[in-house]
Design a binder for these strands. Structure first.
Lengths: 343, 343
DNA sequence: ATGAAAGCGCTAACAA
DNA sequence: TTGTTAGCGCTTTCAT
């Protein structure tokens, strides 16, 4: 820790000034090739490493971005972070992670912490609990580059990268209908999160587009868990006219549905169809394999970073402020949604 | 970004010096309660936030730790990061993530980047490809607090938090034997990673402890994938005297084994037993449900951070340098390893 | 209990 | 093309 090599060390050794060393090190155009070479040589020999803290203090740029996710334990976010990180590192940026644990309070704290750390920009996937958006609005007013991914809010002029949840839901529902299922039910996710509202809407409109009646008793309000999938299935089966298929807002819910339906000795697929959403890993390993929708997580992370980088590099943040990147949902057709039982 | 509130702003307003403000803000004992109160009040009113960059530059502490993981996309690491982060934030530390993508080269780059970012300490889970440890040794020599988790190296005097892979493997194998399986095979993981060597050893010793003969034809060198599990199973089934159970070094491998064995119309459990390792999410949702070993990921993350924090706070890094925390593997008995077929 | 002054290491305007 | 000088905002001796 002692005896740090600084630009002064190099300057002294070469009988030039620290400023020249600094310029040479950053390949400043007005420094002679000769000086650059000798500086680089000495720097290399002494194994000099620029002190980024000092550099940040002076330049005001930390080359660090912050990422706020609900939880690193959720596969989806780990995967998006993977995408963010890979591109960020390639561009010389570090990534600070902060978990909101789905609470508004920790999300606010995360914003404060990251801003206090003087990150150059922040990527956020909004917590389930968040209804008050003032912490985002404030950041925006402070001109801190901010981009949402997946869980976005379109109402406060902050750009985002999302997938087309509406379209994914529409296509999944439509697929079930085309397979010949007649009474499609839906297990919805928390409606304060936009992605789940969109999925519900996609489901509804697909019914409508196929001249099928929307039945409120075929919509169950779930909460992203195996258990709520089970409950939804029980509820559906308790009705006089039972649904014969379910589009679940999310894979774990779909899994719960499958378990409960199988418990009742109803055959999936054939007698009953199921479609999920998220392409969780387990989907292709359960029986029946789960039809679902891939959200292009790694790509989403990369696009989010790219968009943020534009904001960081633009002087006028406001210019591209309404930008929104919508990725295609990729439908994955497996056994659970087909009409014929695949053995 | 302009017009930042600094300690000078507060100082001017109160007609005191920045030094006093700085002290008051950090609750320095020799500052009068009255001064503290007024400083705090003004700071609050102006919404002052300490500039951590400047603070770091001056004090030499960034209150940031770095974490190097093979990939954020792997569930296990996401979960450990979750543990690290939760405790780090509670202690006022930020967490910088770096992914090695299992390559030695990126791991070295990660160390350099994090050191350049002046993190206060680094947590590492070693990349699959890494055989040369000089980048760790150098960090140690520079007195940079360093702690390994899960993928550790015991030979270079760096503390670590791991689970007892040997014991987990021993108990899993022993369990299969106690269930009545007679010819237990093993699908090993990459032997340059210590955890997999330990698991192989635990397997071997469990056989020995039960007076069962070790048979090299019952050991298949896999590489942590479904595919290698399938290949291992085919290989085992091709033998004259076939194994009747498999302890797989990892869950995905176990899944591949199960798929292949089922393909051959052999009943699991009953005719064939399978035990995995890692407690991946899918294990409880496949059929048969997978017996496996939980690695206490979140706890591991927390313990790793705690240990690192000790190092950061100790002046003499060398004192506790040989510390090693070994967590208990938690065996999870499900259907795949029982002797009677559970319907 | 507070002030004065120096400086962490780097960058950037201005000069030369 | 290079040097001079002045900080970025904070912390920390050393005085008082």
């Amino acid at each position: 820790m002692s005896n740090q090599i600084t630009i002064s060390t190099i300057a002294t050794e070469l009988n030039i000034t620290p400023a020249t060393v600094s310029r040479a090190l950053r390949d400043h155009p007005k420094i002679s090739a000769k000086t650059k070479k000798s500086v680089l040589r000495v720097a290399d020999r002494l194994n000099y490493k620029r002190n980024k803290i000092a550099s940040s203090l002076r330049s005001g740029k930390t080359h660090t971005i912050g990422v706020i996710i609900p939880s690193a334990e959720i596969n989806f976010f780990g995967s998006v972070v993977h995408g963010i990180e890979s591109l960020a590192n390639a561009h010389g940026y570090n990534v600070l992670i902060y978990q909101s644990n789905e609470t508004h309070q920790q999300e606010v704290k995360g914003m404060e912490t990251l801003i206090a750390a003087r990150v150059d920009g922040i990527l956020v996937s909004i917590a389930k609990d968040t209804t008050d958006n003032s912490h985002f609005v404030e950041a925006k007013e402070k001109n801190i580059p901010l981009v949402f991914f997946d869980r976005a809010n379109d109402d406060i002029g902050i750009p985002s990268v999302v997938i087309d949840d509406y379209r994914g839901a529409f296509l999944a529902t439509d697929h079930l209908i085309k397979q010949g299922y007649k009474r499609i039910a839906h297990v919805a996710g928390p409606q304060n999160i936009k992605v789940f509202r969109d999925r519900l809407e996609g489901y509804s409109n697909a019914l409508q587009a196929n001249n099928m009646q929307k039945n409120t008793r075929y919509i169950y309000q779930g909460n992203i868990s195996i258990e709520s999938g089970r409950k939804a299935a029980s509820y559906f089966l308790s009705q006089k006219i039972k649904p014969d298929a379910v589009f679940a807002a999310e894979d774990f819910t779909a899994l719960g549905v499958i378990k409960e339906i199988k418990n009742n000795k109803i055959k999936i697929p054939g007698e009953f169809g199921v479609f999920g959403f998220a392409n969780e890993l387990f989907g292709e390993h359960i029986s029946p394999t789960l039809s679902t929708i891939d959200q292009q997580t790694v790509l989403m992370g990369k696009e989010a970073f790219k968009l943020l980088l534009q904001f960081i590099e633009e002087k006028e943040v406001s210019v591209i402020t309404q930008k929104k990147i919508v990725l295609e949902p990729l439908l994955i057709f497996r056994e659970s949604s087909s009409r014929k039982k695949i053995k």
